[in-house]
Design a protein around this nucleic acid. Structure first.
Lengths: 358, 358
DNA sequence: AGACTAAGCGCAATCGTTTGGCGAAGTCAA
DNA sequence: TTGACTTCGCCAAACGATTGCGCTTAGTCT
């Protein structure tokens, strides 16, 4: 193998600073600074058009890039936004983060992200680390419904907003998870399915809480209340969803439908149904949440509730930008939509067929 | 809804700087600086034990956190590492990034990440943005086998290393993908399966190239060369894997096995087999790559090649740290392992049964 | 012609840290 | 007592950018 070529260079990279530009353009450093910054909103301190052109030419010629450290030392603004999410290995959060990044870049901010794994101690540590980097603002994707973390955070003077999960009284960009739960429930009820089990999520996350409430309320109002023992909480991934479903099935209940507050749990549940000799989509309708790419690509495409995750991330940044501009934005609540696929469509048909046969 | 409480605070946050500490401890600012930094490697400039204690006490008392901007303005070191990946929504890259983050934090570096989407123009832009933030080093997870990007990058004086994908002549932390391809092939050959199709990945990524080569070479050497028309390239996710498999099946070939260079493509392929009335794992063995969590949780658990993604990320950072310490590290190549699950185990048995019946 | 205005630009302080250099005091030996 | 060293800590100059203030000069008004 040849010698790697990407070693640190010893040669002193001749840095181009305001001074360099000032000297070659024959003006003072402060003039250059003003020209480079006011470019758009030329208000107070202007320079003659010729000077502006000359300086701009020199700047682009020398490929000037401002030293962010110097700039933020002086201005006390960093143009950084710190982002905290439960984990980036969850495609939903990763997608939200992509949206955040896109919007941040558009507004001239750069972001850095870390994951709290929903562990309070870790969250404290990560937040402290982020604050040490002097972000102009922060975005929390891992807010918990209870606890005083956000209270304390809001006393630190760094503005922030929430994304994905909301908490009453704090600015947030989320989707209407209660409505999402309703959509799922209405769909099942329209199909005539009334015996439902529910795989909820983390009990401290508004996403799980709201989706569950929307679903449960709708079933109750329709006259088909869901008994408590058919509602399971937990951090469900595919394996977790499978186990949860198994434990429900092991009680011997008869089910028409299962609603899981995330697609991976739903996929796991489908596995458990299969293990039990039931056909997901024919014997039991399965409905998930999030509409991850996988859910339409699996052998039994999954009915699910779609949310605009990328968009949500972008909205969070828009809120932050408004906040930083001194405006008083209000929380954003995006509408979810139902995506109907095979995993819920076969059951009614199968029932009808069975009925006819009988 | 109550008024959001996370608005920017107007109150001037009284910053505690070296000066604050110096004043309350009754020493000079430079003394404080030295004490806080030399703490470990007290070499030239020492302070008396009493002074050290006093200053340290004051510092922790006032909860001093150094101003990174000022520090990096002065030292020309940012303690930042820039990371570029194809996309964070791929769980493999997200896991690698988590490893990067862990190791970076351990070494006192912080990271920021963006995704290039494997788009050359975007890669250039993102890299420029990152460089403007003066990283001490960079990590590229989206290296392409050809092109002069890395060549040009190495002239910019910012050290870097590659992760996930390797390129001859550049420092990298990867797994032995050629070996991984071999493992997959050997497994199938041992099961007596000789008619294989191959869903390769992006033709410019060393991961796809090497895995493919390892697999193809092994089959060739065993006397069962794989015809070109059974090797498909493309950026395959689940849907893509499904389509690719369909197109192969539509040619009417008989297959013993399919090897996909990523698990999602493999899952898609299983779907296509099912559509064609074939049972994955019984009629056709399916083997994937990466061992993502989903692969063991699906109804037909997937045989796959496991790589230590988190570890790989950490190794990349270790390389960077060595580089920054002036050492000349050599590339890291982690060994993959084969994880055998049901998707390859039923075929031989089914054959034997069929044979007995005949 | 004198006074006043405003455009155009330079001056210098400042943000918080780091670090080479230097001075004062203490230690030790001769 | 003196000279040679240490030890401990202060001084001040950077790093690169921003910004309030004030100095020119040219143009306008009376």
């Amino acid at each position: 193998m040849p010698v790697p070529r990407n070693l640190p260079s010893t040669e002193r990279r001749d840095r181009v600073t305001l001074r360099t530009i000032a000297d070659t353009a024959g003006v003072h450093v402060s003039t250059v600074s003003r020209i480079l910054n006011n470019q758009l909103g030329g208000s107070q301190h202007t320079a003659s058009p010729e000077t502006v052109d000359r300086v701009l030419a020199v700047a682009t010629d020398l490929r000037y890039t401002p030293n962010q450290s110097a700039r933020s030392l002086r201005t006390r603004r960093s143009s950084h936004i710190g982002v905290l999410v439960p984990t980036l290995t969850d495609i939903v959060l990763a997608t939200i983060y992509e949206g955040i990044e896109e919007a941040a870049e558009r507004h001239g901010y750069s972001t850095y992200v870390t994951n709290s794994l929903d562990d309070p101690a870790r969250r404290e540590r990560q937040t402290a680390t982020m604050l040490a980097r002097n972000p102009d603002a922060m975005i929390f994707g891992d807010a918990e419904a209870h606890g005083d973390f956000l209270e304390r955070q809001s006393r630190k003077g760094v503005p922030f907003c929430l994304v994905s999960r909301r908490v009453e009284g704090f600015l947030s960009a989320t989707t209407d998870d209660y409505r999402g739960g309703q959509l799922a429930a209405e769909h099942l009820l329209e199909l005539g399915l009334v015996q439902a089990a529910l795989l909820s999520g983390k009990p401290f996350a508004s996403t799980a809480i709201d989706r569950t409430a929307g679903f449960v309320d709708t079933f109750r109002d329709a006259g088909h209340p869901i008994p408590d023992h058919l509602i399971l909480y937990g951090p469900f991934d595919t394996a977790g969803g499978r186990e949860a479903m198994q434990s429900i099935l092991s009680t011997g209940v008869t089910l028409d439908a299962v609603f899981a507050t995330n697609d991976f749990a739903a996929i796991g549940a489908m596995g458990a149904l299969r293990d039990a000799g039931l056909v997901a989509g024919a014997d039991v309708a399965v409905i998930g949440y999030n509409d991850v790419p996988l859910s339409e690509a699996i052998p039994m495409p999954l009915t699910t509730v779609h949310s605009a995750h990328n968009r949500m991330g972008q909205e969070a940044v828009e809120l932050i930008v408004k906040l930083l501009n001194g405006e008083q934005p209000t929380s954003v609540l995006l509408p979810p939509t139902l995506v109907v696929r095979e995993s819920t469509l076969g059951v009614a048909t199968a029932r009808a067929a069975a009925f006819r046969r009988a």
